[in-house]
């Protein structure tokens, strides 16, 4: 810090006392040796683990590379993606309906919704998958018909409940129960003042929901729902018990033939990790996009951003003003 008395006592930088204040040049900072040791131990442990894995004679990395792009594995990846996306979309639709039922004035609708959520959250998804796959034991034929007439269609349950369809049904119905709770929380997080203002302008309850409440609830719902989708990507692996032709089913079919269990589990894990990473990337983009318009959930974040913005503008203005004063002198 220079103490140039000739330039006058304008501004904090030129304050002659500042040389005696703590600054980067004259201060000794804490060193945190503990952090360094912990980091070293962690790296050593990780290195040992990677070394043990890489040099393990029981893992053939060549086979991992071979099966990574094996056609049957790639088909499995596609089915896993298809299953996850369809189950999430259908689950979300079920969730919105259940959430609105749960918040309705109709006690029967409320009770049905509660019952559904209890049942599907209360039983393991594995049990539900096997149940749907074996639906033919309960109902050998599925019939859609107008009552008391002969107009309608009939299917053989076993041809409808393929591994894929049973998996889709089971996963979607299950996710619907969790989605219902997320959507309900999102709707309730939108303040009652919003709906009152909409009411006072003459909107009907359906308009209030569609125009004011749901668009704001969506922003609150997206982050937890992204997590549900990422969870779903991996839950689909349970589908292998009903032979749904997903990634895990196909990987297991290969290792049952050639006994390269570890190699194929690594192949499957690599694909799951890749898909999850991509999904996480899109979830973050989606969050940013929906956080752009000012919602309840993002209000604080946005306020902070706007605050920073105006502060920055103020700094620039101040600098410009300082510049002007200096030029004037």
């Amino acid at each position: 810090m220079g103490t140039n008395a000739a330039s006058g006592a304008l501004g904090a930088d030129e304050d002659p006392r500042s040389a005696s204040w703590p600054n980067h040049a004259n201060t000794i900072y804490n060193r945190h040796p503990g952090r360094f040791i912990v980091a070293l131990v962690c790296i050593a442990a990780l290195a040992a683990f990677v070394y043990a894995l890489a040099t393990n004679p029981n893992i053939s990395w060549k086979d991992v590379a071979f099966y990574l792009f094996f056609p049957k594995i790639l088909q499995g990846v596609l089915v896993t993606l298809e299953l996850s996306i369809l189950a999430t979309v259908i689950g979300l639709a079920i969730g919105v309906i259940l959430a609105i039922m749960k918040l309705s004035h109709n006690p029967v609708a409320r009770m049905l919704s509660t019952l559904y959520i209890w049942f599907f959250r209360g039983t393991p998804v594995l049990v539900q998958l096997i149940f749907w796959f074996n639906l033919a034991f309960l109902f050998p034929k599925l019939v859609i018909a107008i009552p008391f007439t002969s107009i309608g269609y009939m299917w053989d349950t076993n041809t409808v409940m393929t591994g894929f369809n049973a998996a889709l049904l089971g996963l979607a119905l299950n996710l619907g129960a969790y989605a219902a709770e997320i959507v309900r929380a999102g709707i309730q997080a939108v303040s009652t003042g919003q709906s009152e203002a909409a009411s006072s302008l003459g909107m009907t309850s359906a308009q209030r929901m569609r125009i004011v409440v749901l668009p704001q609830a969506v922003r609150i719902i997206i982050p937890p729902f992204g997590n549900e989708f990422i969870g779903m990507l991996k839950t689909t692996s349970l589908v292998y018990v009903v032979a749904g032709n997903d990634l895990m089913t196909n990987a297991s079919q290969i290792y049952k033939e050639n006994s390269k269990i570890m190699e194929l589990l690594i192949v499957a894990s690599l694909w799951y990790m890749l898909i999850t990473a991509v999904a996480t990337y899109f979830q973050e983009k989606l969050e940013k996009r929906f956080g752009h318009a000012q919602g309840v959930s993002s209000a604080k974040r946005t306020a902070r951003r706007v605050g920073l913005g105006t502060a920055a503008v103020r700094v620039i203005e101040t600098q410009a003003a300082v510049q002007l004063t200096k030029d004037g002198q």
Binding site: S191, G193, Q194, E196, A197, A198, S199, S200, L201, G202, M203, T204, S205, V212, P215, Q216, R219, A293, Q294, G295, V296, A299
Partner: peptide, 24 residues
């Protein structure tokens, strides 16, 4: 009916303590 309430409120403006502007 609910629609009659809605139609009635069209004709009456209301301003709230906490503004209640639509955040979206």
């Amino acid at each position: 009916r609910l629609t009659e309430f809605a139609a009635f409120r069209r004709d009456i403006g209301m301003v709230f303590q906490h503004f209640n502007l639509f955040n979206n």
